[in-house]
C-alpha cells in the first residue's frame, strides 16, 4: 500500500547507521556530525511515511489532484528547526570543551574513573 520504496528504506538505514557510528566516536565534532545525520534520518523517516505522491501540498491547483501528505512535512519542518537550534548549542558546547581541554574528545567523567580505578571499596563503615 503506502510502504516507501526499498531505495528510500535503504537510504534511511544508511543514514541512521552512519549517524549512530559517528555518535559513538570520541571526537567531539564527529559526535556533532552524528547528531546532524541522525536528524536528517529522522526527518526523512517522517517524510517517507507518505505515499509516493510527489505533488506539493499546495491548494489551488487543479481540483481532484492527490496532494502529498502535509502533516509529516510540517512535523519534519519543526524538527529541522529544532535540530538546528540544538545543534548550534552542541557546537558551542563542543567548542567550549575543546577550549578547556585543548583536546577534540568527549572527556570521561573523572569521579567514575577514580572509582573504577580503585581496587576495593574506599571505606568499610
Amino acid at each position: 500500500m503506502n510502504a516507501p520504496s526499498l531505495l528510500l528504506v535503504a537510504a534511511v538505514a544508511v543514514l541512521y547507521s552512519s549517524g549512530f557510528y559517528l555518535l559513538l566516536q570520541r571526537s567531539l565534532m564527529r559526535v556533532v556530525f552524528g547528531i546532524l545525520i541522525l536528524g536528517h534520518a529522522a526527518n526523512l523517516s517522517l517524510l517517507v511515511t507518505d505515499t509516493a505522491i510527489t505533488l506539493p501540498p499546495l491548494l489551488g491547483g487543479e481540483p481532484g489532484q492527490q496532494l502529498s501528505d502535509p502533516l509529516p512535512h510540517a512535523m519534519a519542518l519543526t524538527a529541522i528547526v529544532i535540530t538546528f537550534g540544538v545543534t548550534t548549542f552542541l557546537l558551542a558546547l563542543a567548542y567550549r570543551v575543546w577550549l578547556d581541554d585543548e583536546n577534540d574528545e568527549v572527556p570521561d567523567d573523572l569521579e567514575d574513573r577514580r572509582i573504577s580505578r580503585l581496587k576495593e571499596p574506599e571505606d568499610s563503615s
Binding site: M1, A3, L6, V12, Y16, S45
Partner: peptide
C-alpha cells in the same frame, strides 16, 4: 560497525513495515 548497522537497519525496516501496515 555491526551494532550501528543493525540499529539503523532495524529502524528503517520497522518504518517500512509500519508504513505498509497502515
Amino acid at each position: 560497525v555491526l551494532m550501528c548497522a543493525a540499529a539503523g537497519t532495524f529502524l528503517a525496516l520497522t518504518l517500512w513495515l509500519a508504513s505498509h501496515a497502515r
